[in-house]
Design a protein around this nucleic acid. Structure first.
Length: 262
DNA sequence: CCTATAGCCTGACGGC
DNA sequence: TGCCGTCAGGCTATAG
């Protein structure tokens, strides 16, 4: 789930539920979730402080702290946020719980422990260290920058779109959606797409990401004609009479319509 | 430079 | 019902 539109939704959720509340305690249930520190160190650093604002870069969310620095959250394949008040209402699979002094809680819910929490001094430095490409929805990431990011690539377009070092934010699901909306086959070689086609792909990508964010990344609520809610072998194509098929690309199972995408 | 593979971790689902 | 294999929306390391 957690690709750019999902993480953007989490960001807005955190903004709406958990800013400017003093952190009383942080309970991390899995040591492996915390990068670069122990759960105790994480807790003692956060205790007594508050999240003041958030940033997002690709699939990474940053909760900025009063006094500087930030908590980086990465959601792996299954992570999400859930706020609640009564501690008896803690959701199942909560791997980290932030308890605020006012009695509110924010849980990082993650059935599979493939995410990450990390204290960072500086968000921009983190993005650089991780060698993340520009955020796919960043204002400064224009069509020229998109073409530049993909130029020289010898592999398949779906692989390139999912490579976070080139551009940050797309994963398996939304790379499929973008390619479906653009009518481009997932295994198309990047080198076979001319600049005009790449420009078209860029505009499609931006539109898809904005639309999905506007719908809070809920597959069932996306407009007619979207593939994301129909990720099932043999499902009817939302745009033609054909059927959705799966295809293996870079070790991931992609969904596409053989009739609409070539 | 790029792809394939395995591994991390654990729940859901289908088949027998 | 129970057991087992397979798969799952991320990412990394390794080998070719």
């Amino acid at each position: 789930m957690p690709e750019l539109p999902d993480v953007e939704t989490f960001k807005r959720y955190l903004d709406a539920t958990s800013l400017h509340k003093t952190i009383a305690e942080v309970d991390v249930r899995s040591e492996r979730l915390v990068a670069g520190a122990t759960p105790d160190e994480l807790a003692s650093t956060l205790r007594g402080h508050a999240f003041t604002s958030t940033r997002r870069h690709g699939k990474h969310l940053f909760a900025l702290l009063d006094g500087g620095g930030a908590l980086e959250l990465h959601f792996g394949m299954t992570g999400e946020l859930e706020a609640y008040q009564d501690s008896g209402r803690e959701p199942e699979y909560a791997q980290a719980v932030f308890a605020f002094e006012n009695g509110d809680h924010l849980a990082l819910v993650m059935p599979r422990k493939l995410g990450e929490l990390r204290l960072v001094d500086d968000v921009d430095a983190f993005v650089e260290e991780q060698a993340l490409g520009p955020d796919a929805l960043d204002d400064a990431f224009d069509a020229d920058a998109f073409v530049r990011a993909l130029s020289g690539r010898r592999g398949m377009i779906k692989s390139a779109l999912m490579t976070q070092e080139l551009l940050a934010g797309l994963g398996n699901v939304y790379s499929d959606e973008v390619l479906f909306q653009a009518g481009v086959h997932p295994r198309t070689k990047v080198a076979d797409l001319d600049e005009a086609k790449l420009g078209e792909l860029y505009r499609t990508m931006r539109r898809v990401l904005r639309v999905v964010v506007d719908h809070r990344a809920r597959p069932d609520e996306l407009p007619d004609g979207y593939l994301t809610g129909r990720r099932e072998e043999g499902a009817p194509c939302p745009r033609c009479d054909g059927e959705i098929r799966t295809i293996e690309v870079s070790g991931r199972t992609g969904y596409y319509c053989p009739d609409c995408q070539d």
